[in-house]
Design a protein around this nucleic acid. Structure first.
Length: 260
DNA sequence: ATGACGGTGTGGCACCGA
C-alpha cells in the first residue's frame, strides 16, 4: 500500500499535474493540501475518472485539504476534534487494509509567519490541539498515519541554511519541540527510517532560482505509528513535479507499506 | 535591507505563503 502527500498550492491550477502524477504513481491514497477552493469547485468527476474517491474539506482562497483514495474512505472527520478552527486544515479518514483499519490524518499545519506574531501563537495552539486529539485517535486506532505540510523543519538536516535561519519561522526551538511532542505520542518520521540523500527537501521558494540551487526545506512528512513502523518499506520525496511548468512550490512525498 | 515568485480576489493592488 502506498500513501502520498502533496501540497499543491491551488488545485485549480495544479489538477492536470495531479492527474499526470497519479497516472505515473498510482498510489492507494493521495493527501492534498492548499486546495484554495471551496467544496463546490472541487474536481470530483475528473478524479473519479482517474479512479479516485475524494474526501474533501475545502475553503475559498486559502487552505483546504482532501484525501483521494482508490478504495472507499470511512469515518470522515474534518478539522481537529476539540479545537475550534475557522480554517480548513485537517481531514481524517479510515481505510481498509489486509491488516485491518488504518486511520489516515492529513494536515495543512499553520505557517506561523514569525515568532512573536498572532499567527505564531495560533500555530502553537493549533499544534497543542492536534496533539491532544491525536492522543485519543491513536488510542482508538493504533494503525495511524499522519501526513501533510507540517511547516516545521525537524532538525538541521531539513534546511538549506541551518545557521542563517536559526530560530526563524519553521526553524524555531518552540516549533521543533512541538514536533517532538507529536512524535512522543508514538509516531515516527517515515523518511528517516531509511538512508536518504543529504540535502533532501520537499519545498523550494519560487524566487531566486531556489530549486535550481537546492535551497529548500523538508517540511512535508509522513509519520507512522508504532504499530505500523515495521510495515514501512520505503519513503521517497519525488522532486520531478517541481520541474513542471507552473509547479507547486512543494513536491509529493510517498511511503510504501507492506500490510499483507 | 528589501524583495524577489506565484496564487487568490474584485482588482489595477493587497494579502498570504515559507
Amino acid at each position: 500500500m502506498k500513501i502520498a502527500t502533496w501540497n499543491v498550492n491551488s488545485l485549480a491550477v495544479r489538477l492536470p499535474q495531479v492527474l499526470d502524477w497519479l497516472a505515473a504513481n498510482p498510489v492507494d491514497a493521495l493527501c492534498l493540501q492548499e486546495l484554495k477552493l471551496s467544496d463546490d469547485k472541487f474536481p470530483l468527476a475528473a478524479l473519479a475518472a482517474a479512479g479516485y474517491e475524494s474526501a474533501v474539506f475545502g475553503q475559498k482562497t486559502y487552505n483546504g485539504v482532501a484525501i483521494l483514495s482508490r478504495a472507499p474512505a470511512r469515518n470522515i472527520v474534518k478539522n481537529i476534534v476539540g479545537f475550534t478552527d475557522e480554517q480548513s486544515r485537517v481531514i481524517a479518514v479510515t481505510l481498509d487494509t489486509p491488516k485491518g483499519d488504518l486511520r489516515l490524518v492529513n494536515g495543512y499545519f499553520v505557517n506561523g509567519q514569525a515568532p512573536g506574531t498572532d499567527k505564531f501563537d495560533y500555530k502553537m495552539k493549533w499544534l497543542d490541539g492536534l496533539r491532544n486529539w491525536l492522543r485519543e485517535e491513536l488510542a482508538a486506532q493504533p494503525n495511524l498515519v499522519l501526513v501533510g505540510d507540517f511547516n516545521i523543519t525537524s532538525d538541521d538536516r531539513d534546511t538549506y541554511d541551518a545557521e542563517g535561519l536559526r530560530e526563524t519561522i519553521h526553524h524555531t526551538t518552540e516549533e521543533r519541540e512541538h514536533l517532538k511532542a507529536l512524535l512522543s505520542l508514538g509516531l515516527h518520521d517515515a523518511f528517516r527510517l531509511f538512508e536518504q540523500p543529504e540535502k533532501s527537501y520537499s519545498w523550494w521558494d519560487y524566487r531566486e532560482f531556489a530549486f535550481r540551487r537546492n535551497r529548500g526545506l523538508r517540511i512535508d512528512y509522513i509519520l507512522v505509528s508504532d504499530a505500523l513502523k515495521s510495515s514501512v518499506t520505503s519513503c521517497v520525496i519525488d522532486k520531478a513535479p517541481r520541474k513542471n511548468e507552473r509547479p507547486s512550490d512543494h513536491v509529493p512525498v510517498w511511503a510504501e507499506f507492506n500490510l499483507l
